[in-house]
C-alpha cells in the first residue's frame, strides 16, 4: 500500500494542538507520514526541535515558493495565512509523488483508524466531509448549523483527502490558485478562507466522495445529530458510528456553550473536551510567549492592526509601493499608514 502523506498547517501558537494531532494520528497510523506546514518563525530563545516532536517533517512557509512572500503574507491575518498555504502545501506533496494526501486541521484529534479514507482514495480523487449530514428541525439549531454552513461553507475543510491521480491534482491546483488570491474571511463578499471555495468541488470535479459517515469530523456544528456515547467495551461512537475524529474548534468556555446546547444531557462530549484541554495543557510549548506569531508585528514591534492589512490587500498600488510592508521607519508602510490615519 502506498504511504499516505498527511499534513496540518499552523503557527507556533497551535503547536500544542499539532502535538495532540500528531500523537493521536501516529497511534492509529504509525505508517502515515505527518508533515507540519509552519507559518511562523521561532521567537528568540525558543527552540523547536523536530526530533522531540510527534511530527515526521517540517515545511516552513518560505519553502513553499510563494511569489512576493512578504507582501502576500501581510495581506492575511493568522487564520487566513495558515489556511491560505494549504493548497500550496497540498500541491507540493503531490508534486513530490504522493499518491494519497490527507489534510487535517491542527485542532482535530484522531480516535480510531482512518483506513477507510485510505481505501476510498483508491477509487475517489477528492474526499470532503460536510458540516451536517441531516437536516435539523429546531429553529435555533437551523440558525446555528444549516445557516452557518450556508455562510461559511457546506464542507468543513478541517479535513480533505486527495489522490495523486490527474483529477486529484487538478483539484489541488485549482484550490491552490484560489487560495493564493482569495483566502480571506470576508463572508459578506462570499469568501470564507479556504472553505467556501469547496462548495464548488462536487460541480467542478469528478470522482468526489462526500463522506456521509457521522464518525468523521464530529464537532459542535453537527453534535445535534451526532450524540456521543461510550459503550461498556470502551468504544466511543457518534450517532452509532465509531468516532474517527473530533474537531475541537473552540476550547474556551465559549465553545462549551455550544456543547451545552447540543450535548443532549450526556456527559461524554464534555469528557472529550476536558480530555483535550488536559492534553493541550500538557503539550503547551515551553518558553513560547503567549499569543506568539512572528508576523503579527511590524519590525518596530508595533502590532499590525487588521485595518492596515485590509488597506494593503485592497490597494494594488500600495502593494507595489511597499513590497516589504513589515518594515518600519522612514518610507515604510507603517509610517505611511500612520500619517494617513493622522489626516
Amino acid at each position: 500500500m502506498t504511504k499516505v502523506r498527511c499534513f496540518t498547517s499552523a503557527s507556533f501558537s497551535y503547536l500544542d494542538r499539532v502535538r495532540v494531532l500528531g500523537e493521536t494520528l501516529h497511534r492509529h497510523h504509525p505508517d502515515w507520514e505527518f508533515t507540519f506546514c509552519l507559518s511562523d518563525i521561532e521567537p528568540e530563545g525558543f527552540v523547536f526541535n523536530l526530533d522531540e516532536e510527534p511530527i515526521d517533517a517540517l515545511v516552513r512557509i518560505e519553502e513553499l515558493g510563494i511569489p512576493n512572500l512578504d507582501s502576500w503574507m501581510f495581506e492575511h491575518d493568522i487564520v487566513e495565512l495558515c489556511t491560505a498555504v494549504k493548497g500550496k502545501m497540498l500541491c507540493r506533496l503531490l508534486e513530490q509523488g504522493a499518491a494519497k494526501v490527507v489534510y487535517i486541521d491542527p485542532d482535530i484529534a484522531i480516535f480510531a483508524d482512518l483506513t477507510d479514507i485510505e481505501r476510498a482514495l483508491d477509487t475517489h480523487d477528492v474526499i470532503l466531509t460536510p458540516h451536517q449530514l441531516q437536516p435539523d428541525t429546531n429553529e435555533t439549531t437551523i440558525r446555528d448549523n444549516e445557516i452557518g454552513s450556508l455562510k461559511f461553507g457546506i464542507y468543513n475543510l478541517g479535513f480533505v483527502a486527495v489522490s495523486g491521480r490527474p483529477e486529484g491534482r487538478r483539484f489541488a491546483r485549482w484550490w491552490r490558485d484560489r487560495l493564493l488570491s482569495f483566502c480571506f474571511d470576508d463572508v459578506p463578499n462570499g469568501l470564507f478562507t479556504d472553505q467556501k471555495w469547496c462548495d464548488h468541488v462536487p460541480a467542478f470535479f469528478e470522482n468526489v466522495l462526500i463522506l456521509r459517515d457521522p464518525g468523521y469530523n464530529v464537532a459542535s456544528w453537527n453534535l445535534s445529530q451526532r450524540p456521543i456515547t461510550i459503550d461498556s467495551d470502551g468504544i466511543i461512537r457518534a450517532a452509532e458510528s465509531i468516532l474517527r475524529f473530533f474537531h475541537f474548534t473552540k476550547v474556551t468556555w465559549a465553545g462549551e456553550i455550544m456543547l451545552e446546547r447540543y450535548c443532549g444531557n450526556r456527559i461524554e462530549v464534555f469528557e472529550l473536551m476536558y480530555w483535550y484541554r488536559a492534553q493541550l495543557a500538557r503539550k503547551a510549548p515551553k518558553g513560547l510567549p503567549e499569543r506568539w506569531w512572528a508576523f503579527a508585528h511590524y519590525e518596530s514591534g508595533n502590532l499590525i492592526p487588521s485595518r492596515h492589512r485590509l488597506a494593503y490587500r485592497q490597494d494594488r498600488n500600495l502593494r507595489r509601493q511597499f513590497p516589504n510592508p513589515f518594515s518600519s521607519g522612514m518610507n515604510s508602510f507603517e509610517q505611511f499608514m500612520k500619517e494617513r490615519e493622522m489626516l
Partner: peptide
C-alpha cells in the same frame, strides 16, 4: 480501549 484513552 478508546474510552481509556480519554480517561484521566
Amino acid at each position: 480501549s478508546t474510552a481509556c484513552g480519554i480517561c484521566s
